[in-house]
Design a protein around this nucleic acid. Structure first.
Lengths: 184, 184
DNA sequence: CCAAAAACGGTAGTGTCATCACCGTTTTGA
DNA sequence: TCAAAACGGTGATGACACTACCGTTTTTGG
């Protein structure tokens, strides 16, 4: 029988994630953990108790950044045809708010573990829409949900919003096959 | 009137770049500079004399990695139609040998300066083929050489060769317009 | 309300790394 | 040959991630 987690623990964890998210956004992933603890108003010891490795904190921030997109993706799935749903989910996944995109890309590139974690997160976001598009016979042959996730992550590394926008259009055009095409 | 650069200087510089390239490939960009100097058979002081900042060494390795691709791209431009030339250059740029790709991607993500440098390098590789494709009226509207470079760099961050391969095909399909299409 | 459990937070320390500062020694171009 | 230019070893500095203690505060279950 394990006790319920203490409130201050939960509160501090959330404060740390929020502070880290802001800190990463402003200064990039190389910001010192001590600074993050200060911003969160907790001691460094507490930070390390919650996240024994920096990578863990990065993953938590990645989760946090993804949560909003995940919700809007789920909403975009309701009551629309597979093609529109897919286009919406794909676009929204690539187009988190400007700063979030940069933060996500920076963090996703900050170590193998974070990288794979980001991949899993995005896959969970775009997976359903992708499967539905495939079932409808409108997905380009040989493309998996993991591929789509990989594509989304690629667009996040674009060096400008402009380039990302264009990449999204190019990829969408290549991914959604015209109605009535052959399905292997 | 400046003297000609000394031979040992040039030799050591090349040794450092080669050693760094190998070291980065094996261990990633976080490898210690001392280790790179050891591999190159020079003192750390010499390393710092040539590259006062690690970022500078990374840029030099990036140059080194790009050189080969640049040559083969130039060769691919000769005596072919614009469409084939573009496809070849684009594919080759994305498809440096497996390890090189990983190294390039890692280094390109290792700091703003290196990032921008990589962008410039790739632009110089794909620029001519892109311009030629546009002149032939077969490039998707609104796409610049910088966009293409950005796309290439995106594909380098794919998490698998498989995903990269697919991304290349998807993008090529979206970038090269069918013969006789309208050109804005 | 009241302990015991669980968290907290400050301080000091370790190991790694980039980068600098000297400085005597070797190499090289003119 | 010889001075300029490079070299390379050594020690120092400052960040930073991460650890180890340990006394103090908060919280929870009874």
């Amino acid at each position: 029988m394990t006790r319920a987690p203490r409130r201050d623990q939960l509160r501090n964890r959330q404060r740390l994630i929020t502070a880290a998210r802001e800190a990463f956004t402003e200064q990039g992933p190389d910001i010192a953990l001590e600074e993050i603890a200060r911003r969160a108003g907790v001691g460094t010891t507490t930070l390390y108790r919650h996240f024994p490795e920096k990578e863990g904190l990065i993953e938590a921030v990645l989760d946090d950044l993804t949560a909003a997109v995940k919700d809007s993706a789920a909403r975009a799935m309701e009551g629309t045809d597979p093609v529109s749903a897919f286009r919406a989910v794909f676009t929204q996944s690539c187009d988190m708010s400007e700063q979030e995109t940069a933060t996500f890309a920076q963090l996703a590139g900050a170590g193998h573990r974070a990288d794979q974690h980001a991949q899993r997160l995005i896959t969970s976001v775009v997976g359903p829409a992708t499967d539905r598009l495939r079932t409808a016979g409108r997905l380009r042959a040989g493309i998996t949900a993991e591929d789509i996730a990989s594509f989304v992550r690629m667009t996040l590394t674009a060096d400008s919003d402009d380039a990302r926008e264009k990449a999204i259009h190019v990829m969408l055009d290549g991914l959604v096959t015209p109605e009535g095409a052959a399905v292997p």
